[in-house]
Amino acid sequence: MAMTETDKDLEALFAAARDTRDDMPEGLAARMMADADRIQQDQLTLVAPVRSRPGLWDQLQSLLGGWAGMGGLVAASAAGVWIGLAPPEFLPDPAGLVFQQEEDLELFQSFAFNDVTLEEG
C-alpha cells in the first residue's frame, strides 16, 4: 500500500524533474557561447600555422640566412673540397703529407737512430 503511494510520488517527482531539465541558470548559456566563440576562433587561427609549421629543412634554411646564405655556404664548402683534393702550389698536399710522415718514421728507425748515437759517441 505504502509502496504504491510512494511509487506514485516517485513518478510525480521524476515528472517534475523532467519538466525543469531544460532550464539552465542565468548566464550559463552565455558563458558556454563565449567559450565556443573563443575556442572556435583559436582553432580557426591555429589550423593554418599548424599545417605549415616549418620542418627541419625550413628551420635549417632560415637559420643559415635563407637561399643567399645557403648559396654562400655551398660555394665555400665546394671550395674547401676542391682545395683538399687539388691544392694549389703554395699549399702542402694533405695526402702527400700523411704518406711522407710514414716514410719519415721508417727512415728514423733504420738510419736516423744510428746516426744520432754515432755522432754522440
Binding site: D22, M24, L28, M33, A36, D37, Q40, Q43
Partner: peptide, 27 residues
C-alpha cells in the same frame, strides 16, 4: 560545422546539449 567556424552551429549545440549536461550534473 562548428569546427569549420559556423557560429550558428555553436548556438544550436549550446541550446540542445547545454541543458543536458547541466541537468545531469545538477542531479
Amino acid at each position: 560545422m562548428f569546427a569549420r567556424g559556423d557560429r550558428q552551429a555553436a548556438a544550436e549545440l549550446t541550446d540542445r546539449l547545454g541543458p543536458r549536461t547541466y541537468a545531469v550534473a545538477l542531479r
